[in-house]
Amino acid sequence: MPQYTKAKALLESLKSVPDYRVDIGKIEYPLHEVLFMVIFALLKGNTRFKDIWGWMLYNRNNPILMEIFQTDEIKVPANSTLHEILTNTDNNALEKVFREYFSPFACKEEIAVDGKWLKGSDASGQYVQSCHKAILNLLDKKSKIVFAHKFMHKDKENEITALRQVLDEEDLFSDEGQIFSFDALQTQAETLNRIDQKHGRYIAKVKGNQKELQEKIIQTIETFEQPIDTYVQEEARLSCGKKYVKREVALFYTPSAHQVMYHKRFKNIQALVRITKTLTDPKSKEASSYTEYYMANFKTTAGDFLEKILAHWRVETYHYHLDMLFDEDGHIAYKEPFSISILRSFALNLFQLFHNTNKNKKVLPTGKTTMAEIKRTCRHDDRFTANLFEQESSRLSNV
C-alpha cells in the first residue's frame, strides 16, 4: 500500500507556487520541497528561521522525507537563503494551495472573522515606512480551523475593507446562508448589507463607539413588554479572571413582521440580543455586571444565539495557539511575514484536525490529547508527524 499519499499530493500542489528565482534550471533546492520541509519543521516545534533551517540541515537524510519527495538526496539552502526564499514567496499562490488543501475539512456553516497583528513584521521599527502587517483569518467554527486568510499591508483599520474583499471571492462562500460573526469593528453598514445581499447571515456586536446605533437598539428593546425568549447560563467553573460567570440572554424580534428595527443604513435587522454578563468573585462575593448588544438578520432561540456568539471566540483561541505553539508574536519576519504565517496555519490546522478526532481518546504516549501534547509527540516521532498529513477530510468528525 502506498505511503504518505496525501503528503505527496500536497507536495505536488506546492509546485504550483511560482519560484521567484531567475535561473530555475540551476536551482539545487526546489521551492516546493523547501515549503514542505518548513511545514514539517513547524510541526516538529521549530518556530524561528534559524531553528527551521537547523532542523532541515540535520534531516537531509530523513527516510520519511526522502519517501515523500521520492528522492535519495535532499538539498537544503543556507540559512540566509531560506530567509530570502520565504520572504519572496508568492503569498497569493501559497494561499491558494492552503485554501484548496483545507477546504474539504471546513463546513463553512458558521464563520468567525478576526484580524491579527503580525508583530514581528516591524521589529524595533527597522521598517518604519512599511508599517506592521496584519492578517485577516476566517475560521470555520465547527472544525476550528482557519480555511482562508486575507493579507493587510498597512494597519488594522484595513480589516474592514479586507473582509469586504473576501466577501467578493465567490469560491469561498455559497448561497446556503453562512453565519458570520465578528467583533464590533466590522459592524459597518456596507459590510452587513453585503452579507445580507449575498444571502448570508450575521451576528454583529454593537459597542459604545457606535453610540447612535446602540441607543436605537436600546430604545427598540424598551418598546417590548418582555423578551420573545430568554436564556440563562451559569458557569460552575472559574473563568474570566478567576470569577464565576453568569450570562442572561434576552432576545427581541417581531413575530408578525420581518424586521424588528428599521435603520436607514442597516438593512434587514430581524433580531436584537441583549446579554447581561455578571462576574462574581468567589472569595469576596462581590459582583459586577455589564451589558452587550447584538443585532442579526435572522431569527433563532436565545440559547442558540448565545452558543453562536460564544463560538466566535474560537478564533481568539486559534490566535492564542499561534502564539503559544508557534511563537508567532515573537517571530521576526521583517518586511514580508505572510508566507511563514500561512505555513504556520498549515501546521496549526493539522494539529487541530487531529485534536478534533482524538480529543476524548488516549492515543498519545502521555494519554492526553491536547494541542501541546500533539506538538510534543511530533517533536519525538517523525512518523506521527508525517501521518498528520494523511488525516481524512470527513466533515462528520466529532469536534
Rank of each mutant, 00 (worst) to 15 (best):
L136D: 05
D51L: 11
R194G: 03
I218L: 06
G25S: 06
I68N: 06
E28K: 15
R237L: 09
E222N: 13
Y334Q: 14
Q270A: 14
I195D: 00
K242I: 01
T385S: 06
I145R: 03
E73N: 15
E170R: 12
A123D: 12
E286Q: 15
F354Y: 15
E373Q: 14
H83I: 14
T47N: 14
Q214S: 08
H83V: 12
I309F: 03
N268M: 03
P18V: 02
P30F: 01
V260R: 00
Y334G: 04
Q391C: 08
A78P: 02
G45R: 00
L14Q: 01
R379W: 05
S345L: 07
K207C: 05
L251Q: 00
Y253G: 02
I179G: 06
G177D: 04
V245A: 00
G241K: 01
T230R: 10
L396M: 13
E100Q: 13
F338C: 04
P104C: 03
L172G: 02
A333G: 07
E292D: 10
P77R: 08
K362D: 08
K211V: 07
H319Q: 10
Q219T: 08
R274H: 09
L43T: 06
I179F: 05
T89I: 10
K156I: 07
K375W: 00
L238C: 04
K75E: 15
D155H: 07
M66A: 06
T291L: 03
T276C: 11
Y101W: 15
E316V: 10
G54P: 02
